[in-house]
């Protein structure tokens, strides 16, 4: 009883300055509410966030659109001339869209082609690897929590660190070649200078870096499937493959769809780790869209911010479609849950 009283006294003492401050803050807020009404208060509290969102998201988006309609190498808008849709026309000037070399902006179409194949292969492999890993981690393994952490850990790494780690492993005198030589006296491979190997390396490294998140989402989905469904299937003598195709996969479908869309969005945006690992090379074999935009706008000797802006808006449109897909799927799952 005594200790309760003491602690309540202490609480009141600590709260006294807070309460005093609140009373002071209260005065203008009450006045504001009186003049603007309760709806105005909502706008007042939302204003700081909307301001930050406006300055750092909406404004750059708008400026980017303006950039895409201007020409020249200057960064100041006042020094740039209006060119209308010229940048877009330049991007789309091709005699044959399947042959990047026939396009005026061949690097853009090479990057689009590379990104397309990267997205298709990386997402397909990512889903497969994440699903298999989640299925394995969902079993009664020894040290299951440890293995889950191991697979999730790369997600926490900065993409630059991921790129540097793998560069150290894959370079000509790197760890992988050293191990191959020690084990099988294998002649060193040129993982990062051979066109085909480099493309595969970027896919492999990006899967390694991001699969942890998707594995986690799929694992959560697997764990949400009631155990007794599997027991019912066991009583019915269902073979493991049929259990997977007829029970696990259909019940995992909502998570799987979310993972597919997230992986697609992430794959389209691939940049940092590949830029550190290969720099887009050799040649343009691993030049992806984001790197093209970066180099066109900032890094190349003849920089063209307008062209980069136009390319980024086109890429943005693709991402908008993918995001709408994700939102649609999310809503569909939500409705399913309510039913």
């Amino acid at each position: 009883m005594t200790s309760t009283t003491t602690s309540s006294h202490l609480g009141a003492l600590l709260m006294a300055p807070v309460n005093a401050l609140m009373r002071v803050v209260d005065i203008p807020l009450r006045g504001l509410q009186k003049s603007t009404g309760i709806g105005g208060m909502a706008a007042f509290f939302l204003a700081p966030n909307m301001l930050i969102f406006g300055i750092f998201v909406l404004l750059p988006l708008f400026i980017n659109i303006v950039y895409s309609t201007t020409g020249g190498t200057a960064f100041f808008l006042s020094e740039r001339s209006f060119v209308g849709t010229e940048q877009y026309q330049r991007l789309f000037t091709c005699t044959n869209y399947l042959d990047p070399m026939s396009c005026q902006e061949d690097a853009f179409w090479t990057a689009v082609g590379n990104t397309f194949w990267f997205v298709v292969l990386q997402v397909a492999l990512m889903i497969l690897v994440s699903l298999v890993t989640a299925l394995i981690l969902n079993r009664d393994l020894i040290g299951r929590s440890f293995w889950r952490a191991v697979f999730f850990f790369p997600v926490l790494l900065s993409p630059v660190v991921v790129g540097l780690i793998w560069k150290w492993i894959l370079q000509r005198q790197g760890l992988l070649n050293f191990i191959l030589y020690e084990i099988g006296n294998v002649t060193p491979y040129t993982w990062l200078t051979d066109r085909n190997w480099t493309f595969i390396a970027t896919i492999g490294v990006s899967i390694w870096a991001h699969m942890g998140l998707y594995t986690l989402i799929l694992l959560a989905g697997l764990q949400a499937i009631p155990k007794d469904l599997y027991e019912a299937a066991e009583m019915d003598g269902t073979k493991p493959a049929r259990v997977f195709w007829r029970i696990t996969l259909p019940l995992l479908a909502p998570n799987l769809l979310v993972v597919v869309v997230l992986a697609l969005i992430k794959a389209v945006q691939i940049f940092d780790e590949v830029y550190v690992l290969t720099g887009g090379g050799p040649g343009t074999s691993t030049l992806y869209l984001t790197q093209y935009i970066y180099e066109t706008g900032f890094a190349s000797a003849l920089r063209n911010p307008g062209l980069a802006a136009a390319a980024s808006i086109l890429m943005g449109l693709v991402l908008v479609v993918l995001t709408l897909m994700q939102l649609g799927l999310g809503r569909k799952n939500e409705n399913k849950g309510k039913r």
Binding site: D228, E231, A232, E234, G237
Partner: peptide, 20 residues
């Protein structure tokens, strides 16, 4: 003998019906 080969059928507390 496996559960499937014992020739028994079980009704679960949660019913364990396949929702899809």
């Amino acid at each position: 003998t496996s559960a499937a080969d014992r020739g028994l059928a079980m009704v679960f507390q949660s019913y364990a019906l396949y929702p899809h």
